[in-house]
């Protein structure tokens, strides 16, 4: 009450100044860069844009990026849900430690995450040498990129689902069990319906990060051009070569994906709130 009245009594110019400063900040840090991406992308005309976007290099990097996302998102969906389930529904020794550990991929720099996998599976380590002798390539190849991306994006789904599942409690599941449902029936018919909006929200965030990840993938992929370069890496290459139109054209694709993600995300958020 007190706060409300004091805010209401704030003189008009303070209010206006506050809003103006905020808008100015947004313009400089968000709108202007976004505008630059698209204006640079189309600077040399639509024809050049089209050519850049359909060049073999960009196309192959789009393919690779989508492949990584397609593998990575389902893996994280399954394991993230399992992990959230066990943390929210059971109490066991080390639960607190596990909950903290989930955050680790967010806490370490992506570059370090990439390095971890290089050291683990690369030619330096015992595991890497053994894999090499078996002719299995992980580092500087698709499996390594997928591993690093999965690691970096792992927390999204578990972190969305744990508080949601905890707030839902076990009553619905217990009711289903007393009615004779099996564990699997209970999960698919009851739990999944209860968490679906939260899960979709987590999947969208995971997907966004999987597509946009740079640092971890840069280390683990070995940057073999046209082979292990995902879309963000290709943009980096093009930029370094002063191929600005091409770089910004590719960047505009990623930006568009980000917009789609944002729209889906806010739609999910609304659903998530409504389902509470």
């Amino acid at each position: 009450m007190m706060q409300k009245t004091s805010f209401a009594n704030e003189s008009l110019w303070v209010k206006r100044a506050g809003i103006l400063i905020t808008l100015g900040f947004l313009a400089v840090f968000i709108v202007l860069p976004l505008y630059t991406i698209f204006s640079e992308a189309f600077r040399s005309g639509v024809a050049v844009y089209k050519k850049a976007v359909t060049s073999p290099e960009v196309l192959s990097s789009i393919r690779l990026t989508l492949t990584v996302a397609l593998v990575c998102v389902p893996i994280n969906t399954i394991f993230g849900t399992l992990l959230a389930w066990s943390i929210a529904k059971y109490s066991f020794r080390g639960k607190k430690a596990l909950t903290t550990l989930i955050e680790l991929p967010f806490a370490v720099s992506p570059v370090i995450a990439g390095l971890m996998f290089v050291l683990l599976f690369g030619a330096h380590g015992g595991l890497g040498r053994w894999l090499q002798s078996m002719d299995i390539k992980i580092v500087f190849a698709l499996p390594g990129i997928i591993l690093a991306t999965t690691f970096v994006t792992f927390p999204f789904i578990a972190r969305t689902l744990i508080p949601l599942m905890e707030s839902l409690g076990n009553d619905d599941e217990e009711a289903a069990l007393t009615l004779g449902a099996s564990g699997l029936q209970t999960f698919f018919k009851i739990t999944l319906s209860n968490i679906k909006w939260g899960l979709l929200y987590g999947i969208i965030l995971t997907n966004a990060r999987a597509i946009g990840e740079y640092g971890a993938v840069a280390v683990v992929s070995g940057l073999i051009r046209g082979e292990t370069t995902t879309l963000p890496l290709t943009i980096g290459f093009l930029f370094d070569e002063y191929a600005f139109s091409a770089a910004f054209a590719a960047a505009s694709l990623l930006t568009l994906l980000a917009f789609v993600t944002l729209i889906l995300k806010s739609a999910m958020e609304r659903r998530l709130k409504a389902s509470d």
Binding site: D171, D172, E174, A175, A176, I190, S193, N194, S275
Partner: peptide, 9 residues
């Protein structure tokens, strides 16, 4: 159950 536990969906 005390809080009904009806399946919302």
């Amino acid at each position: 159950f005390q809080h009904y536990a009806l399946f919302k969906h």
